[in-house]
Simulated scan of single mutants.
Amino acid sequence: MKTLLFPGDRRVELAEVPTPTPARGQVLVQVKAAGLCGSDLHQQFRVPASEREGIVVGHHTSPDTIPGHEPAGVIVTLGDGVTTLAVGDRVAVAHVTGCGHCVACRRGRDIDCPEKVFYGLDRDGAMADYMVAEAKDCVVLPETVSFVEGAFWACGAGTGYAALTRGGLVAGETVAVVGLGPVGTAAAFFAAKAGARVVGFDPLDERRDHARGLGAHHTIDPTDPGAMEQLAELTRGEGADLVIEASGVAPGRASTIQIAGVGGRIVFVGLGNRTVEFDIDQVIQKQITCMGSWVFSTPDLQDMIDSAVDLGISVENMVTFRYRLDEAEKALSEFDAGSLGKTVFVWD
């Protein structure tokens, strides 16, 4: 089968490798769509070739590991003992798999498992014609949900949705989203669909325009010296009820304290590795609640997709770029340069 590899130094490599065979409790998925995520860039694609073999976010990765953790496709082979799925099922695959036995896993929270494994990082992922997945990590895609949507739900869209749930969004509230990449734009989209008033923050004109086209009611350039005055005017001086921080950069994270109103909630969802200075006195005086949201559980992924279908909500229009696997060099070059919206590899 054909696969994509990231040897490092911003290079891509197409390779032919044997098609894997599913073991007990596993399935073989013929991949139909595989999304690109920002973590693919900074954990694998941009990494110097000399550093590609090693530990990333506590997990081992290698240039020989097939990348990609946003898969959707069709089950073509069942491993022994798989009874909950059938050949021909259309599925998305949750991108973290746990041991299956600990308390976190039994709650469906594989992301909290001490022995969790990430598809596309320390186990082969989605950027190949076929991938092996644990049957327990697969969620069924209704016929009305495209494979491209399923791939986006598997990480980016689902992460944005889960951040709003974590923050306890209430219809009629003002929601500020800091960082309008794929996760932030998804959060803005879902917040607007849930009846919130949405204000998006991003320094890029194109991203602000894109977010407004998907439901954000107002957008602000955070580098504008008058950004906070604009927010005050929009909220009559009250600030945001809920702030979703999806940029993962220090200035964006620090700005949330100013953006949140009295009694506001902040959900941090964008990962970053730099120290951030916070005005803790403002947190106290404004009585702000700060939370973290790290993706979602596998049962939550199924619930999110099913709920979207019932509500007639599609995330198809958020996917702005589609490429074949043999166009990977162009896809990664444009994605690395900050392409707008979501990028997905497609097979049909």
Rank of each mutant, 00 (worst) to 15 (best):
G226P: 14
I244Q: 04
G200V: 01
E238N: 10
G226K: 15
G237V: 06
A216E: 10
I220K: 09
R253G: 12
A227C: 13
V262R: 15
V243C: 04
I259Y: 01
R197I: 09
A187E: 08
F190T: 11
K193V: 03
E206Y: 08
D241C: 04
I244H: 08
G226F: 11
Q258E: 13
T275G: 11
S247H: 06
R207H: 12
V267I: 04
R208T: 03
G237A: 10
T256A: 01
T223S: 10
T185L: 10
Q230T: 06
G200F: 01
D205T: 11
L242N: 04
E245V: 07
G195R: 14
V198L: 08
L231P: 08
L231Q: 05
V267F: 01
F189K: 07
G248Y: 07
P222A: 09
A254V: 04
F190D: 07
D221K: 13
P203K: 09
A260Y: 03
D205M: 09
A186M: 02
A211V: 08
R253Y: 00
I244Y: 06
G261H: 12
V249A: 08
T223W: 00
P203H: 05
K193C: 04
E206H: 09
L204C: 06
T256C: 14
T223N: 12
G237R: 10
V198D: 09
K193I: 02
R274D: 13
I266R: 02
E229T: 13
T185R: 01
H218I: 03
G215D: 08
G270M: 06
R265F: 02
T219Y: 10
G270P: 14
I266V: 15
A187V: 07
F268Q: 10
G248I: 05
D209C: 05
F268W: 05
L214G: 12
I244W: 07
A216I: 08
D209M: 07
